[in-house]
């Protein structure tokens, strides 16, 4: 790979290569920028005439074949070079190593659900091991979404009805943001997730811990699930209305519904709202919440309800 080593991107090898292409195009662009703008401004000032001044005599130059040939041929070669460089790195971007860990991604309005090879799932959070290539195999449950890892310089659309993929090989421990980049409706800009890159030991410990039965208290588990399932993107904990109503003081409150009726927010109501969000829509809010049927398990919902009771 003719990678320009002038970049210090150490997040992943691919990112460094993409930055190399970026730098190359920037340098070429800067050259042409200085050349063209320089002549443009120089000529405009050098040959300027004062207002209301009679035009000076100008030469009758109508063109020059060799100059025009020059600026057809040189730009053609330059763009060809950019194309080839871009293509070579693109090939790397699109070719996952054979030993990549496959993680399934299901996108829906407006969350990502990650399914690990051993069947465990997580919402809006995916944990990977440093140095280990990961391939995301992605499918949408509704409209088109995107998955964009800005730090890794990669993104891909997620389609309903067919699979797309994306791979990364993270080289640095840390938390990296995942953004949705294909417009998908009201919650598009809050459709975000994180990729947590862990070192070998931490990752091993996490794998074991997750395999053990849940030892957290019910409300603690609920709190974690609420954070990780993307609820907080639309439902605040501090009383402000976002895309959806706040969770603060929700439990036991009388809620006015869109159809004019009202209902007390008890366990049954909250459970129904998670599984069938549009069945009893709160007044003043759009019918945009996705169903969590099949995303959250029964005991997860119980934990979330237990947590909501504590948010006052």
């Amino acid at each position: 790979m003719p990678g320009f080593a002038a970049t210090n991107n150490t997040v992943s090898g691919v990112a460094a290569q993409v930055d190399g292409v970026f730098l190359f195009i920037t340098l070429v662009g800067l050259f042409f920028f200085v050349l063209t703008q320089g002549f443009l401004i120089y000529f405009a000032l050098r040959y300027r005439r004062k207002k209301r001044e009679e035009p000076a005599e100008t030469p009758y130059i109508t063109g020059s074949h060799w100059l025009e040939t020059l600026w057809v041929v040189i730009p053609s070669l330059v763009v060809l070079a950019i194309f080839i460089y871009g293509y070579l790195v693109y090939r790397t971007i699109r070719t996952p190593p054979a030993d990549a860990v496959e993680i399934q991604v299901t996108a829906r309005q407006w969350l990502y659900q990650f399914t690990y090879p051993d069947g465990r799932t997580a919402v809006n959070e995916v944990r990977v091991e440093v140095g280990r290539p990961v391939k995301f195999l992605m499918k949408s449950a509704d409209v088109i979404h995107g998955l964009y890892l800005p730090d890794f310089r990669v993104k891909m659309d997620i389609l309903p009805g067919s699979y797309t993929y994306l791979w990364v090989q993270p080289e640095q421990v840390g938390k990296y943001e995942i953004y949705c980049t294909e417009y998908c409706g009201t919650g598009h800009s809050v459709m975000r997730a994180v990729m947590i890159v862990m070192n070998h030991e931490d990752y091993g410990r996490w794998v074991k811990q997750e395999e053990k039965p849940e030892t957290l208290s019910l409300t603690k588990k609920g709190e974690k699930l609420t954070e990780n399932s993307g609820c907080l993107a639309c439902h605040s904990l501090d009383g402000t209305a976002r895309v959806g109503p706040t969770l603060k003081g929700l439990f036991g409150k009388k809620v006015a519904l869109a159809d004019g009726k009202s209902v007390v927010a008890d366990e049954t109501y909250i459970r129904e709202s998670i599984l069938e969000p549009n069945a009893k829509l709160v007044q003043g809010f759009p019918p945009v919440m996705p169903t969590f049927q099949g995303v959250l398990k029964d005991e997860d919902i119980t934990a979330i309800i237990a947590y909501i009771k504590t948010v006052k």
Partner: peptide, 11 residues
């Protein structure tokens, strides 16, 4: 060209 080149377009 940043957008026309495949590698940088992906970003």
């Amino acid at each position: 060209p940043f957008l026309g080149a495949l590698a940088t377009n992906v970003h």
